[in-house]
């Protein structure tokens, strides 16, 4: 249980950031635990932004853009939806609840909807534990790191190979193949992993 979950909200400039402004103009109150990062389009949401937010201890991440068919860049919001759904699967691999990541369409006129989203998201996150990465960072001794690693579902990672097939670096140097890297982490020996320059 976490009293004040930290929420990072990535909003598009045109609809959702404006929707958040509209909540302000209409003086609609919502919990103060959200920090907004403005992007031009929700399609700008890079999975890395979301993962980094969780890595740094955010309890929840909200991605918010224009309603379907309302995107100012025609289809950026559709791309955001695809990305968010795939990052949810990655979160599961890490052992994080996928509901910590939320996608919400908020138009420029929906101040009430933005505020309600923050209220509801806060309540849902309050029911979860604190982001485990915030409490116990993965970095540490070899033993704790390995222990943490195996607690997650990292073993799923050897299944599809999609990342390796498109990885331009792996094509040049197989040592950097993501599949190969994960395989080495899982099979050890541990000392070698920690001294390996390519990991």
């Amino acid at each position: 249980m976490v009293a004040e979950p930290k929420i990072i909200a990535f909003t598009c400039n045109w609809c959702s950031y404006a929707g958040a402004d509209m909540a302000g103009t209409s003086r609609i109150q919502y919990p103060p635990n959200v920090r907004i990062i403005r992007l031009m389009c929700s399609g700008r949401i890079d999975p890395a932004f979301i993962l980094m937010a969780f890595e740094l201890g955010a309890d929840g991440v909200l991605v918010s853009g224009c309603h379907p068919a309302d995107c100012h860049y025609i289809s950026g919001n559709e791309k955001a939806e695809i990305r968010v759904n795939s990052v949810k699967k990655i979160l599961e691999l890490f052992g994080l609840e996928p509901e910590r990541l939320r996608l919400e369409w908020v138009s420029a006129s929906e101040g009430g909807h933005f505020a309600e989203t923050i209220r509801d998201f806060t309540e849902k996150l309050q029911k979860l534990e604190e982001n485990p990465f915030k409490v116990k960072p993965v970095s540490g001794t070899i033993e704790t790191t390995m222990e943490e690693t195996f607690k997650t579902n990292i073993r799923y990672c050897l299944q599809c190979g999609a990342c390796t097939s498109i990885c331009p670096i792996a094509r040049v140097d197989p040592r950097y193949s993501p599949r190969e890297t994960v395989n080495r982490i899982l099979t050890g020996p541990e000392e070698e992993i920690f001294s390996d320059q390519s990991i």
């Binding site: 389009c41 399609g43 700008r44 860049y73 950026g76």
Partner: peptide, 10 residues
């Protein structure tokens, strides 16, 4: 919009 930047694999 930045969609290309996110899509770029490299």
């Amino acid at each position: 919009c930045g969609v290309c930047s996110v899509t770029c694999p490299t």
